[in-house]
Amino acid sequence: MNFHRRISIARYRYGEQLWGIGLSAPAFILMILLMLGPIALTMLLSLTDWQLGMGNFSWIGLKNYESAVNDPIFWKSLFNTSVYVAVVMTGSIGLGLLLALMINQLSFGKGFYRTLFFLPVMASLVAMTIVWEFLLHPEFGLINQLLTALGGTPNNWLRDEDWALAALCVIGIWHQAGFNMVLFIAGLTAIPKFLYEAADIDGVPPGFSRFRHITWPLLGPVTLFIVVMTAIKAFQVFDTVQILTQGGPSYSSEVLLLTIYKEGFEYFRTGYAAALTVVFLTLVILVTVVKSLFLEKKVKYT
């Protein structure tokens, strides 16, 4: 065979490969620097006793994880986070779906209501949390005043062990429902109209039957996406807790991210905080794995 030709093809291929590597290099390097690198570093840190600002450290193996397992605050924090995720997920998805279904039925004013319920998402959460603080204020908060007017007993919501986490859940739902609603509306619009017509012809009665047989199954992919997004966002709850309760009273509203923050930047136990971060990361990844391994197959129809 033509030897020179073969050489030139090889040279061409080599050149093309070089180009490919060169073009993907910036993204690759950035990903290592900003994502994979820090994760690896955190994993390494979690095996040390390093404290923020200290010059030296020693490897202590899995000691940090061991102390986490023996730390009741960690368990309390994990439990609270799970409760928060479960409540906010169901609440904001249910509310979002309900709002989407109702808004979708409207013949006019869709845009108005959509904007109205989307406002909490657009507003700065920190600012809105301060507003909530005033709403929940024990003496002149709107909620207590309303309760008193209606004959109920006012409460110091954020200082009450039984109510602090519940109040945070309500704010979480309020904050996320609008976003889920918008996604659900998009999902509803994507359901072809002719399927409802076919259902009409086939005798599927309107109302709940129609929702069960057509709308809900066809919202499957959107719902799955929303579940994962909401779960991950709920895991990350921090701003509201830090502003309103700082985890109190007596750790009743302590959540994972707050514990990590306190350990890392208040008590400077960076190694321990890194271990908790790894736990946190594992949980988030777990959600994604469950999603792509088990749930995705159920809602993909092609």
Binding site: P192, F194, E197, A198, H213, I214, P217, L218, G220, Y301
Partner: peptide, 10 residues
């Protein structure tokens, strides 16, 4: 229907 309108999830 022209598009058949089959239920994709069934």
């Amino acid at each position: 229907f022209q598009s058949y309108a089959l239920y994709p999830h069934l």
